[in-house]
Design a binder for these strands. Structure first.
Lengths: 279, 279
DNA sequence: AAATAAATAGAATATAATTCCAAAAAACGG
DNA sequence: CCGTTTTTTGGAATTATATTCTATTTATTT
């Protein structure tokens, strides 16, 4: 992929080269139909600089760069842009926008996740005495889901979505327990408070949020953030919630992979248990 | 898209032009890195013929064709395949697989949805006296989420996830009420029973499931199914649940669009209400 | 402040794309 | 079936674009 390639090389480019690189990163879809001269003009420099820049990022020349860029743009347009909602949208358009936003969020989240951190987290979760999961509002749904999922692995996971109960349970925690806080904004008082309380009580704290700059993210021992670009949304957390659940799913499978035999056994048991409840 | 464009134009191309077009359609990813002369040689003709061919299919010239072709090739490679889970997978691979599966499910779901049906459904939901939402297990989470979302629009929506309560509430329903049943398999006894009960009581029934052949789907007045291809999963319903939630989100926004002013008002109220609960 | 290195712009060159034209092939009309 | 017209084609000429080279400027180092 050319875009990350440019990003990587960016730091050790010269000033004018960076100008050009920035322009390309900004509007790659335009550059694809520009000549070296045109691009140079836009950046206040000359064609040869454009060529030098191509060499600097490890591409044969501008012609090849355009091809690579076009390929990347093609991929990109599979991820159609998030378009703001409009009150005139018809049903089909609304669905397309919602689903596209979800797809984008998942794609971007998967790219920004720090897998070594996640690996740590899954080990901690797997060996925890008890896992108390905290979330309110939209995130209470995610919290319940997480508890349900983790429980399928015979991990002791419990969701608390009631403010009072959250605090009571958090203060009851001990070393070896894990407090798992979920909040889209990362600044929901109830969750932040419960996590602080759990931390004071000696529990390990893990955060799942949508903003790396948030209180919840920075204050926790371990943190995961999903990608978030919801300025276009009239309702926040619409697709972030989806990403949160994907993280939970993936975490669960990661934990499962730590002890595959045990996991298979529990799945069989679970399936047997479910047999009777279906037509 | 350039590929269909070539296909369309193919019939009224001259013999040598067709040779060139065929070659391009066969290995577009190669052509992207060829010069007009090279391509011409491969096809036993000359560069000018390549150019003529570009004009004939309605493209400015060979340079532009290559760009379009590269874009198309990029799109092509964007559709990553679902790969089955393996117990040897490392964390990164697990995350990639989970997220990819989610992305695929969302993509396919959006393509298979019948928007006129959905539009009907949103109108029915918007004008319902009360909406009772039924779901157990994994789908209880989706049911709660749906109730929470719909409530934000000042629609009377309630989730019931307890088997007994589901039946009690279903039998209490009247004409004008809507029973909204959620089940991945579409054959969860509890939900199917509750829906039958609601139907008998005179309520309109709406189903959200992952299989169009399921009891729940076929028995309900209105039905939505998401795409499902989970044979690769050790745990069922992993990404279907994500799609269910996306459907809920989109439904909510569709309902909102029916009465935008009301909706904006409720969102403002909600935001004001949430102000105090955050740091 | 002098020396060295790095970066840049613009001229020179090379390459590839595009246009143009004449020859060849095919289609048409008598 | 032959001459005429149209279409198609290949190759030369042209143009545009990309690429390389070099002198100048700018920055860095000692």
């Amino acid at each position: 992929m050319i875009i990350p390639k440019i990003h990587n090389a960016f730091a050790h480019l010269t000033e004018t080269e960076q100008k050009i690189a920035s322009y390309i990163l900004e509007v790659p879809e335009k550059v694809v139909n520009m000549t070296a001269k045109e691009l140079a003009n836009e950046c206040g420099t000359v064609a040869s600089a454009v060529n030098r820049m191509c060499k600097s990022i490890g591409v044969e020349g501008f012609a090849k760069l355009k091809i690579s860029l076009a390929t990347a743009v093609g991929k990109e347009s599979g991820n159609e842009k998030n378009i703001p909602f409009d009150k005139e949208d018809d049903t089909e358009l609304i669905f397309n926008k919602v689903f596209n936003s979800g797809i984008n969020t998942l794609k971007n989240t998967c790219q920004m996740i720090d897998f070594s951190e996640v690996e740590e987290i899954s080990k901690i979760l797997a060996s925890a005495q008890r896992i108390f999961i905290f979330g309110v509002g939209t995130s209470s749904v995610v919290a319940s889901d997480a508890a349900y999922r983790f429980s399928q692995l015979d991990v002791q996971a419990y969701a608390y979505t009631d403010i009072l109960q959250m605090n009571v349970m958090a203060s009851n925690m001990k070393k070896g327990d894990v407090a798992f806080g979920i909040s889209h904004s990362g600044r929901t008082k109830a969750v932040v408070d419960a996590m602080r309380c759990a931390n004071k009580a000696g529990a390990t704290t893990i955060a799942l949020t949508s903003f790396t700059k948030s209180l919840l993210y920075t204050e926790s021992d371990y943190s995961i953030s999903v990608y978030s670009d919801e300025k276009n949304y009239p309702v926040e957390a619409v697709s972030a919630r989806i990403a949160h659940m994907c993280v939970i799913d993936a975490l669960m499978l990661t934990i499962a992979s730590l002890n595959y035999e045990d996991y298979s056994k529990h799945i069989s048991l679970r399936n047997a248990a479910l047999d009777g409840i279906r037509y």
